[in-house]
């Protein structure tokens, strides 16, 4: 599937075509084709074990950190095949960032956490300082931590930590942010804050969010994809998918009859 250089229409951040992900003994994802729209929040829903996490991890080559996974098919980022052998995964991940299920702050200060990605590139200190502040503002946590930048990040609350992680991902200026159940371990108030942050962010970048909460998908996303047993069953605007699902499986899931 050589698709290098094929132009992707405007408004499409990622174009996924015939994506298969296999572990040694089974196929995790089967023939996924989907366009991830630019500057929108796309929710990926489905019962646990359906391959949601593997799906978003395959979008920035994080699958390569798991031994034994093979990826086949094509993921185009602005017309460029990210799985092409001439592409450096490190550069892909700088443009397509990721936030994880639980807060994963490093055991260093708040400031250094957010600066992490910039330090790798040896950015000048004034640039870093600027970017750290800007990212914390974008992640909606600046007001809460602006006096605690030198404190260990681990001393903050879970909700704050998660937003530090979002800020850390934003600091390298990704175009796309992949989020794996970003509020799964947070309380309702923190969840609400993170969701508000997402909405703000989607003005500037694309967000793909895995969630196990159908309500969250309905609240916080504009598009939704439903995965079941490693296959993409249905995708479309969130409103449509929830109100007029085309597939019976989707309907059963979003109405809570199973899953």
């Amino acid at each position: 599937m050589s698709a290098e250089g094929v132009p992707t229409p405007n408004g499409v951040a990622l174009r996924v075509r015939h994506l298969y992900v296999r572990a040694r003994d089974r196929t995790i994802l089967t023939d996924i084709s989907i366009d991830i729209p630019d500057k929108e929040v796309t929710a990926v829903i489905g019962p646990s074990g359906c391959g949601k996490t593997t799906f978003i991890r395959s979008l920035n080559r994080m699958t390569e950190t798991t031994q034994g996974l093979t990826v086949q098919g094509s993921v185009l980022y602005r017309g460029q095949e990210i799985y092409s052998p001439s592409v450096a995964p490190v550069l892909v991940r700088q443009r397509i960032g990721m936030v994880f299920q639980r807060p994963t702050v490093f055991p260093i200060s708040v400031y250094e956490n957010v600066a992490f990605g910039l330090r790798l590139e040896h950015q000048p200190e004034d640039r870093i300082e600027q970017e750290v502040q800007h990212s914390l503002v974008r992640a909606g946590v600046w007001e809460e931590v602006k006096n605690d930048l030198d404190r260990p990040a681990l001393s903050l609350s879970g909700g704050q930590q998660q937003r530090i992680c979002i800020a850390r991902a934003l600091a390298v200026r990704p175009r796309i942010l992949l989020m794996d159940e970003p509020t799964a371990s947070l309380d309702p108030v923190s969840t609400q804050r993170v969701e508000a942050t997402l909405e703000e962010l989607s003005q500037e970048i694309s967000i793909v969010m895995v969630t196990h909460s159908i309500a969250q998908a309905a609240r916080a996303s504009t598009r939704t994809a439903y995965l079941y047993q490693g296959r993409l069953i249905e995708e479309g605007s969130t409103e449509e998918l929830f109100e007029r699902p085309k597939q019976k499986l989707t309907e059963e899931y979003v109405t809570g009859r199973f899953g």
């Binding site: 602005r78 450096a88 550069l91």
Partner: peptide, 10 residues
């Protein structure tokens, strides 16, 4: 998006 190819290659 969709204009020139981004710099992703080595």
């Amino acid at each position: 998006l969709g204009e020139e190819a981004p710099a992703l290659t080595y």
